[in-house]
Nucleic acid binder design. Structure first.
Lengths: 361, 361
DNA sequence: TTGTAAGCGTTATCAC
DNA sequence: GTGATAACGCTTACAA
């Protein structure tokens, strides 16, 4: 039974009265439950919030009233009072990039295990938006904590008020300055491992795709560094202009860059793509140019998206363990919400080289 | 400048006093702004909410105070008062299924253009969860409206209180009973078109993948119906057990089902998959069996996910126009939030056959 | 153990 | 046009 409400016979202090035939239904409140059960709001609140000190008889009466009225606590009112929303915000560039949708999935699951729900914010590479989010714009008050995954520049991270603002966890970047909790990926090492794999497969003319045209994003810089370092370590003869840019890390950007690459002479015999999506595009470009992978061109990416396990050939890659990242990030943010002054920590997520057909067939 | 707060010298009614050296900072409230500007809270609220009746001088004073205090309105308090959260909830089975992450992306964009933000709820095929969401569980009060995309059964949709509950838009199903707004896909027709395309390509032993093992989900039933109808219309000789089940619409389910299919004799020469993801898996199964697509097996899906445009061969499919669906769904939900009693409408999203290499090379 | 009442930060209803 | 003040529905001292 839900409580009826009629405009001309409504009394805020005694809404339980008679049954009116009307179309408007009001949600029951604590006070309605209290007055139906003949107890105080305090007691009802105790029952609802699972407070320990309630006698069995009273609890029964209250629970019956709750069922009768189909009462559900209003989360907004509760939040205004307690300051806790039970909401986490996950900020990422684009939800439909497989790596990020996979991460989102894992974050949602991990959060729900700890009683939190997740709002997703797509920045769409909008820097003003990212900065606003970091400074805790209007939205800040709506969420208990933020998981921040976009490709951010170091400058962007500076000037973020560290105390006072919404608890924040950085995801994926590597540089750690002690201000924010940080679940990182060892990008330099991941790129190093991928490149070394190409070298060990006997490739000698190795290029890369994924540098950013102008902005100082940390991730691409680190992956480029790992690439270069691996070539130096192997004493490989450097290709001219060996790192191509890709603005968006889309399949199409990989396609375009690879086509450019394949028109060169001498043609590269291997390409390390900063993400799997770029690699997928690169492989397609090779086929369209009449080449075969890996015979003419070995291709490797980073991310281990499922698409690469089913592509033809299957895509060699470096797996980034998103379940670990998600799990750890949620655990950290929950800890920080409870202890805002705890020291910031950095956690490095494991990664693993996964050789598949695109480099080893 | 942000307002300082000190435990031993704090006065709720005059928090502007002196500057204390302390670590705890409180967010400024309307009253702080009012007292700094020397006006009433009412006037500040007017300015903040863009109310028309405010004199220029007063507005200036208030705006300066807002800037000085770095004041941001508290969305929770505003919500408690107005009943509007500015939040939409998008319910879907799994965010990392490309079709749904694409839809989510488009919904988030469309919502943000209308001043709404989006919470995503992953049901993970949990029926109890879906039902609870539909009945407006605790979460209901947190959002202004719900966009419901999971594969729901008809029984599930019955027993949902239609008035009184959170505004609801159904996405993707076809049956329309006039109770809920509905942005639908003509699943029967889409499946019919895909199947007819295979027939016209000269295929004679056509199978399908994607029926659900037991539950009465609407979408698979409709796609199966379209498939059958197309074969009947063409007077094609039916294959025995021609529709295989796939519990989750994953690449792997497509792979498994296709492998079963390809071991039969006579072997099918074409397969219609209820989704692109199943089709991707089916293609890989064909390659692993030493067959080629489309020569030995033509493959077509539904969804038009980007992955299919880059796969080898590229995947023939039926495009579902998610931007249209998202746009329309958000427009409908916003309209319904504003006019709860408006008559429920059904909108059919367009679809289009996209023949590609997997059926026509 | 349970009741009373004071806010949480807004918006909206009254007066002026 | 602007100023006091009462809600919105909940949690939680403080009392009993």
């Amino acid at each position: 039974m839900r409580k009826p409400y009629s405009a001309f016979a409504y009394d805020a202090n005694d809404r339980m009265g008679t049954f009116f035939s009307t179309e408007v239904w009001m949600a029951a409140t604590l006070r309605d439950v209290a007055s139906l059960a003949g107890v105080s709001v305090r007691s009802v609140s105790n029952v609802v919030s699972g407070h320990p000190h309630v006698s069995g008889d009273l609890r029964d009466r209250v629970e019956r009233a709750i069922a009768d009225l189909d009462y559900r606590p209003n989360p907004i009112a509760r939040t205004l009072r307690t300051g806790r929303t039970g909401l986490l915000m996950l900020v990422l560039p684009e939800i439909d990039v497989p790596y990020f949708s996979g991460l989102a999935r894992d974050v949602i699951v991990a959060a729900s295990e700890r009683g939190y729900r997740v709002m997703i914010d797509q920045t769409g590479h909008d820097h003003a938006r990212e900065r606003d989010l970091l400074r805790g714009g209007e939205r800040g008050m709506l969420v208990d904590g933020m998981l921040f995954a976009p490709l951010a520049t170091e400058e962007e991270l500076d000037g973020v008020p560290t105390a006072s603002s919404t608890p924040l966890i950085l995801l994926g970047e590597h540089r750690f300055d002690g201000r924010f909790d940080h679940v990182a990926v060892d990008n330099v090492r991941a790129a190093y491992d991928a490149t070394t794999h190409l070298i060990e497969a006997g490739r000698t003319r190795i290029a890369a795709i994924g540098a950013q045209p102008k902005l100082g994003y940390t991730t691409p810089l680190q992956r480029a560094a790992g690439f270069t370092r691996a070539l130096e370590a192997a004493d490989a003869r450097p290709l001219k202009d060996r790192i191509l840019t890709a603005a968006r890390y889309s399949r199409n950007d990989g396609y375009t860059a690879a086509r450019e690459l394949l028109s060169r002479s001498p043609r590269p015999d291997a390409v390390f793509c900063f993400t799997d999506l770029l690699a997928i595009g690169a492989m397609r470009a090779a086929f369209d140019a009449g080449l075969s992978v890996p015979e003419d061109l070995a291709v490797i990416g980073i991310d281990d998206i499922e698409e690469g396990r089913f592509s033809r050939p299957s895509l060699s890659t470096v797996s980034l363990d998103t379940p670990f990242i998600a799990e750890e990030a949620v655990e950290r943010i929950v800890a920080r919400i409870e202890h805002p002054d705890a020291e910031a920590r950095e956690i490095i997520a494991p990664h693993a080289l996964l050789p598949r057909e695109s480099t080893t067939a």
